[in-house]
Every structure is written in structure tokens, then in C-alpha cells.
Design a binder for these strands. Structure first.
Lengths: 204, 204
DNA sequence: ATGCTGAACATTCAAGATAATGTTCAGCAT
DNA sequence: ATGCTGAACATTATCTTGAATGTTCAGCAT
């Protein structure tokens, strides 16, 4: 008669985690990670602070989950550009770099609190940013290999080249630098960098 | 080189300025900028703290002069590499990048105090780092133009390309990043970046 | 006049006290 | 048994205040 009311990963529990993350995310975005207390998050979820610890190891763990989600979003943007397979690889590389720049600049300008949170969490949990970098590296590898496959690019060592590209666009990936110039200046620079890289990658 | 805009006073005064800078430099290197007091610098020079203000506007001004000197040293290293005109431009570009990396890493590892001072001063006086960047940009322009003149390079826009190169080696220029990897990893990356850039610059 | 100083003043730093927050857990309610 | 809480405890942040330091200037010595 009754359908099963529980499972291996009980859905109520998942729901609660999501509710907590949503509440915490809103607080963090509005007031920052440090200024948000566990008690406040708990109140938003109509529960006690102690109860939060049944779903997350601690505050940093909540922050880490949110930071991961932010980085995943960032990654998804890049992925979407890379997988526009109807476009030439060269154009996609160009778009990837400008996408990364525009996202970094945008977050820095419009969501400073979230940005501050991501930075703080990544400071405390280096593996998160490592994972993100690795994933982004793999996306660039995918793009380069596709370019080679299509005879657009000629690349001796794809791994090395992907690393070189990642390194070369550091300025556009680190929020800290965003205060140095306005977006137009950055875009001009990004285009110069892409042009320089492409002239080295293209097959002739 | 950074122009000294601070004084055109006679040579005995310059001597005192030099003595003060030397004393301050030693203290800053050993104890850091913040932990060094004007009174201590003054005592090292057998004078009163008040007398320091006859030669420098304030403590930051002393720090600025020393920071400029550090950046001038850095610049001189690059200049020396660029002006090894018996070497191919490509090789010189390679050496410039590795020189910058090695110097950044070395200062970070061996002179953390001085490094901290330069960073602090540059935070307070952005024009110092701007001047340094401009000078370095010009050196790279010089190198690129030389490469073009010798028919090694083919470069549509030297200014843009020099900017692109400066941008692409950000990771190797900023002390803050030095904690991310060990020197070998950085050198490997630097070589990849140089190779990528060179394959774009070289005439074929 | 010139070069310098000691003392005064303004600002920053640091140590200790206090409050706020993060975390844990025994125990209550269902 | 399970889910949750209030209270206790540990850690971290904030505030306060005296001391240290940066800076200025009237006045002394040459």
C-alpha cells in the first residue's frame, strides 16, 4: 500500500542540505562569509544552530559547498564555449579567454561579497581551487585537441601548451587584479594575448 | 630607470640622504618596514628623528626611495639580458622571462622582508609600480624591435605584443604567487609559455 | 641665516578584557 | 531508535586603553 518513505539518500535530508545552502548563500552574498553567523543561517531555516552540524561538518564546509558551486558555474561557462563545436577552435579559444575575463570582472564588480567568500574558502581549502584548475585545464586540452583534429592547430605537446595558456591568462582569472584596470583595458589586453597565442598555435 | 624626483639639493645633503637610505635599508631588510622606527634609523645616523624630516618627507618617502632602488635593480637585470645583442632575440626573450621568474622567486624566498616592504610601498604609491611596468614594457619593445630588425620575428604590432607578453608572464612577476609551486615547476611553466609565445613571433 | 634638537602633538599599535560566535553533547520529544 | 534542542565549552572577534611611534615646530647653537 504505502510507497517507500525512505531511501539510501533520504530525500528530506537532501532537501534540508539544499535549504541550508540556499539560506547561507543568501546571507553570504549580502553580508559576507565572516559576518554571517551559524545562528542566523539556522534561524532562516527554522532550526537550531546545533542542527546545522548534522548536515554539514562546520561553517567552512557550508562555505566550501557554495564555493564549489560558484566555481562549477564558472567552469560550465567555459565548457559551453568549448563545446560550441560548430565554431573554429581559434574562435572558441578567443571566447574562452574573454568569457573568463568577463566573468572574473563581473563577479568582482557586482558580487564582491561572494567573491570574497570564494577567496576565503579557497585559502582554507586549497584542493578546491586545484580541482577547479584541473578541470579547466582539461577543458582547454579538449579544445586544443579538437583544433588539432580539425587541422586548425599544430601543437607539439598539448598538455604543456594548455598549461602555458592557463599561465598566460592568469591576469584575467584572479579577482585581485581586477582593480588594476577597467574592463575595456583588460579586454584589449586579452585580445592581444589571444592573438599572440593563436599565431603560435595555428597551422600554416 | 625610475627618475628621482625627490631632491636636487647639494652633494653634502645627498650624502646624508644616502646614509639615511643605507641605514634604513639595513633595518628594513632585517626587521621589516613596519617594525623599524624613525628613531632607530636616526640613531644609526647619529641624528635626531626630527632631522630625518629635513631630508625625506616622511617614512613612506624613505621606503619609496628604497623600493625604487629595488625595482631599478630588477629592471637592470632585464636590461642586461635584452642588451646581450650577440644572442638571438628569441633566446634573449627566453632569458628575460626566466630571469624575471628567478629574481621574483629568489627575493620571495631569501629576502621576504624587503619583498614585503616593496609590496607595502607599492600599495601606497601605485605610480612606482606603474613606472616600473612602463620601463619593463619599453625594454621588451626594444627586444622585439631588435628581433624584427634582424628578421627573426614577424610582429604586426610591437606595442600590443609587448603588452601581451607582459600580461602572459604575470604569474612569474608577482611574489604573491611564488608560494603556489616550487621553482622547478615555475621554470617548466615559464619555458612552456616562452615556447608558445616564440612560435607565434618567429618568422617563417 | 642655517642646521639641528627636544618636547609636544597626532596617529597607530598592542595587550588585555569582554563579548560574540563556532562547536559539541547530554538529554528531551516523537 | 531518530531528530532535534538548549546549554556548556572553546575559539575568535571586538573593544578599550595605555604605550609606542610618526610628525611637527619653536627655539637653541653655530
Amino acid at each position: 500500500m504505502n510507497t517507500r518513505t525512505y531511501s539510501n539518500t533520504p530525500s528530506p535530508t537532501c532537501d534540508v542540505r539544499t535549504r541550508i545552502l540556499t539560506a547561507a548563500g543568501e546571507r553570504f552574498a549580502q553580508f559576507g562569509y565572516n559576518k554571517t553567523t551559524m545562528a542566523e543561517i539556522a534561524k532562516d531555516c527554522d532550526m537550531s544552530a546545533a542542527n546545522l552540524y548534522r548536515f554539514f561538518k562546520n561553517k567552512l564546509d557550508i562555505g566550501s559547498n557554495l564555493a564549489c558551486a560558484c566555481l562549477d558555474t564558472k567552469l560550465l561557462l567555459v565548457k559551453n564555449v568549448v563545446q560550441q563545436t560548430q565554431q573554429p577552435a581559434a574562435e572558441r579559444l578567443h571566447n574562452v579567454v574573454l568569457q573568463i575575463l568577463s566573468h572574473t570582472h563581473n563577479e568582482w564588480a557586482n558580487n564582491p561579497r561572494i567573491n570574497e567568500m570564494v577567496t576565503a574558502i579557497c585559502d582554507a581549502r586549497l584542493e578546491i581551487v586545484n580541482q577547479y584548475e584541473l578541470n579547466r585545464h582539461n577543458l582547454i586540452v579538449e579544445l586544443l585537441e579538437d583544433g588539432v583534429r580539425r587541422d586548425e592547430f599544430s601543437i607539439p605537446d598539448v598538455q604543456d601548451t594548455a598549461e602555458a595558456i592557463t599561465t598566460a591568462i592568469t591576469l584575467f582569472s584572479v579577482p585581485l587584479f581586477m582593480s588594476l584596470h577597467n574592463l575595456e583595458t583588460f579586454e584589449k589586453r586579452a585580445k592581444s594575448v589571444v592573438q599572440l597565442m593563436l599565431s603560435g598555435l595555428k597551422k600554416r
